[in-house]
Amino acid sequence: MIVKEYCMYCGECAGVCPHCLIEVRETSIDFNEEGCKDCGICIQVCPVKALAKED
């Protein structure tokens, strides 16, 4: 997952991740890429569109 520099670490992506794969810290985010099913929900809900799939 690409986390753009302007991510505000609000945690909305973590709240909707069906597999609980996102850990949001104060100023960073960790994605458990291995468990990701590419559903894209986290990308869809981000209020500032700071997430993108890697090509």
Binding site: C13, G15, V16
Partner: peptide, 20 residues
């Protein structure tokens, strides 16, 4: 709203996008 603790313990707290 990111609510991971409940899920670690087996509670269903993941929010559907239409409810977030």
């Amino acid at each position: 709203p990111e609510s991971r603790v409940g899920r670690w313990g087996g509670l269903k707290t993941a929010v559907k996008p239409k409810n977030m």
